[in-house]
Design a protein around this nucleic acid. Structure first.
Length: 344
RNA sequence: GGUGCUGUGGCGGAGCGGCUACGCAAACGAUUGCAAAUCGUUUUCACAGGGGUUCGAAUCCCCUCGGCACCU
């Protein structure tokens, strides 16, 4: 197996579970006990984007600076980066950090990106937007189940794994098939792949999974939401809209939880204010409370999905953050991981 | 006090004599280049209460209790 990175610690878990705080704590404790400096790498698909600070729950600018974060603010809102490209980026950053005798800590909750970094994606044809557009046009006309039939004819083994409505994956599968070189059997490409989480790891890693009780997590989500709104999340959304227009909400970045909800509430408020001849179109308290409820719900649904995902992922240390993350006792497994690294 | 409308699962909301929608929420699961995305499965007395008509009522009639509107 070829290593894509030397060694790294991964801190994963659902939103608001305390990943960031935990990682920061590690980055403080490891140097003081082992003399090895740590640098952080973001593994969160929405902290990529510049000017999406509050809603994406980024660390503060001071923290970003202090912990030498990489992978934050690397894209403009209308851009995007696919999982394979991002994995390459992270591996490269890891190697760079290791080369300078430091230890990378990757933090984030985006399942696919994490898996791509941890195991590496199979070498398949890349994303192709022209093809995707074509598939979407056909789907708009005939429906996705028909494209599923199409896939069944070309690559039955893959089609069998996908539901006829699963547009995301049908699209990708067809995209792969259409880009294969002459003479390669589409079906063999798929039937040879093992599930990613069962494949070898891309480097020497130590994975910490953070989570806490439902009760505490829900409470933290609500608290964080209050904070986000007082820090000016609404203004952030309006700024993005002013800068990029409605295209923002059609883009990948615009899919982040809450952004569209806030935008719609603002337009509604504008409309109401206009109709009553008032100048002030700011959101009133009732509307904000409603937004918080709605966004808390979406966030919780996301938590559930993250947990489902992480349950199948590697875990070297399962940390319960229900009582906070101030006190951290290094586990034996982490100590031996660090020893191994230190003795090199 | 009078008149009219109305009362459906945790919520919204169809059905107006027999076939017990649907949406949301919830729970669970999937996840190989847009993933905070997307997709799937599940949710065994929902029909305000009581009485009546009928082979059969959430649906028709009567009464009671809520809600809304208007009138005096």
């Amino acid at each position: 197996m070829n290593k894509r990175f030397e060694q790294a610690i991964f801190v994963i878990g659902p939103t608001a579970s305390g990943k960031t705080a935990f990682a920061h704590r590690l980055a403080e404790m490891i140097p003081s006990t082992y003399g090895t400096d740590c640098e952080l790498i973001n593994l969160d698909a929405f902290q990529f984007y510049r000017t999406m600070d509050i809603g994406a729950a980024k660390p503060t600018p001071e923290e970003l600076e202090h912990y030498k974060y990489r992978g934050v603010d690397i894209l403009d809102p209308l851009e995007s980066i696919d999982a394979a490209a991002y994995a390459d980026f992270v591996w490269q950053q890891c190697r760079e950090i290791s080369a300078r005798g430091k230890l990378p800590i990757c933090v984030g909750g985006s399942g696919l990106y994490l898996r791509a970094v941890l195991h590496g994606l199979d070498p398949l044809p890349p994303r192709n937007d022209d093809l995707r557009q074509m598939f979407r046009a056909s789907a708009a006309e005939w429906g996705w189940p028909l494209l599923h039939d199409w896939l069944k004819a070309l690559a039955p083994s893959r089609a069998a794994q996908l539901h006829p409505n699963d547009k995301t994956r049908i699209e990708r599968a067809l995209e792969i098939v259409f880009q294969l070189p002459e003479g390669v059997s589409p079906d063999s490409v798929f039937s040879q792949s093992q599930p990613l989480n069962q494949q070898d790891l891309a480097g020497n890693c130590y994975v910490v999974q953070i989570d806490c009780s439902d009760e505490v997590l829900k409470q933290r989500i609500n608290l964080r939401l209050d904070e986000m709104f007082t820090r000016g999340w609404v203004a952030e959304v309006e700024c993005l809209y002013q800068r990029w227009g409605s295209e923002f909400f059609a883009s990948q970045a615009g899919k982040a939880i809450g952004y569209l909800d806030i935008h719609q509430a603002c337009r509604q408020a504008e409309f109401t204010a206009g109709a009553s001849g008032k100048e002030n179109s700011r959101l009133d308290l009732r509307v904000v409370e409603e937004l918080k409820r709605k966004i808390a719900t979406s966030t919780w649904q996301y938590v559930r999905r993250q947990r489902t995902w992480n349950a199948k992922e590697r875990c070297d240390w399962s940390f319960d953050s229900s009582k906070g993350i101030v006190e951290i006792q290094f586990t034996a497994s982490l100590l031996s991981f660090l020893d191994f690294y230190h003795s090199k």
